[in-house]
Structures are given as C-alpha cells and as structure tokens.
C-alpha cells in the first residue's frame, strides 16, 4: 500500500537565473535537504514573445519573460518549509516583483520511493 505522508510537502521553486539555482541547492544542503530535481523550463512569457510572432513586439509586457525558468522540485520536511521559503527569497530577491520567480509548497498524497530522512542536526 502507498503511504500518505504528512511530514513532507512538495516544494516548488521557479527560478529565473541559473546562478541562483546553484545557491539555492547549496542552501538546501545546509538545511538538510539532500535531494531535489531541477527542470529546465520555459515560462509563458518566453514562449509567447519568442514563438508566437504576433506577440514578439510586446516583450516589455512580460517582465523578464525572455529568461529561462528553472523549476526546482523537492520533498521537504514541513518544519523546514518556511526556512526554505526565506532562503529562496534571500537568493532571488523580492518575489513579489513581476517576473522574479516564486516558490510554493503542496501537500503530498500517496507516494513511493521517498524514504524518510533523519532530521538535520
């Protein structure tokens, strides 16, 4: 049977600069987060302004839309989530600004393949 876990959440970070990815992953290690997956993605702004000609002159309506998006996915202990949020904001800057990326966490339902980690010291 798959186990429903309440001790972890799926942390999703949307990062616009690759240099920030390095720093966030280093910060994750500090927090005892030893696993994450980084997906090289394209944001809506990038696709619309680059791939759809009719929008190509409207790039300034999509702040930082020309940048790639890197998606960092990690199952994180719930007690570390808030610290991880602060870490991402420290690295990426004010996330309330348009086009600056973002971070959120989702509850995890049934899962397999993610053994429980010992708490970080």
């Amino acid at each position: 049977m798959s186990e429903i876990r309440n001790d972890v959440e799926l942390l999703v970070c949307l990062v616009k600069e690759y240099g920030h990815v390095d720093e966030i992953l280093a910060g994750f290690l500090e927090l005892g987060i030893s696993g994450a997956t980084v997906v090289d993605g394209r944001g809506m702004g990038e696709i619309i302004t680059r791939d759809i000609p009719v929008f190509s002159g409207l790039r300034n309506l999509f702040p930082r839309g020309d940048l790639h998006t890197y998606v960092i996915l990690s199952l994180v202990q719930v007690e570390v989530i808030e610290t991880a949020f602060r870490l991402v904001e420290e690295v990426c800057g004010d996330l309330s600004l348009p086009g600056s990326g973002g971070v959120f966490a989702l509850p995890v339902g049934r899962n397999r393949g993610f053994p429980k980690q010992p708490p970080a010291e």
């Binding site: 720093e23 280093a26 910060g27 994750f28 290690l29 500090e30 005892g32 970080a120």
Partner: peptide, 8 residues
C-alpha cells in the same frame, strides 16, 4: 553542509 554554507 558547512561547505555548502561557505560556497553560498
């Protein structure tokens, strides 16, 4: 973790 902090 210590090396990670220094690298940051």
């Amino acid at each position: 973790r210590l090396i990670a902090r220094i690298s940051r």
